[in-house]
Write a protein that binds this DNA or RNA. Sequence first.
DNA 1: GCCATGGCTAGTA
DNA 2: GCCATGGCTAGTA
Length: 108
Amino acid sequence: MSEKTFTERVVEVIKSIPHGNVATYGQLAAMAGNPRGARQVVRVLHTLWEKEKLPWHRVINAKGTISLTGAGFDEQKVLLEAEGVAVDGRGAVDLKKYQWRPAENVSA
DNA sequence: GCCATGGCTAGTA
DNA sequence: GCCATGGCTAGTA
């Protein structure tokens, strides 16, 4: 059988985060089939973002803030703001406003 | 062993 | 602030 691995599903789900939206590590893990796989989402981003051209900047933590520090923090903030996502000085994003909610996007 | 989490607790104001 | 959690990439033999 050629079942996709959890990692492959994580890659796909990250790729489908819409422009101008954000998703949390745990949310992506759940969408990929494992609600407890947040750490794996972290690993996928860390190791595959370049090779898979992942929109890594659209992934933030469950508190709704940027998890990166230093230069990475600044870059993520800039990339998000460039696509219309407001980020405050602490790196906080309004999840109510910008979190990706696939179900809401289903055409009526 | 590694990783950019997440959720809950204790301790302070 | 602490610690349980999950799946595996990179590098050597």
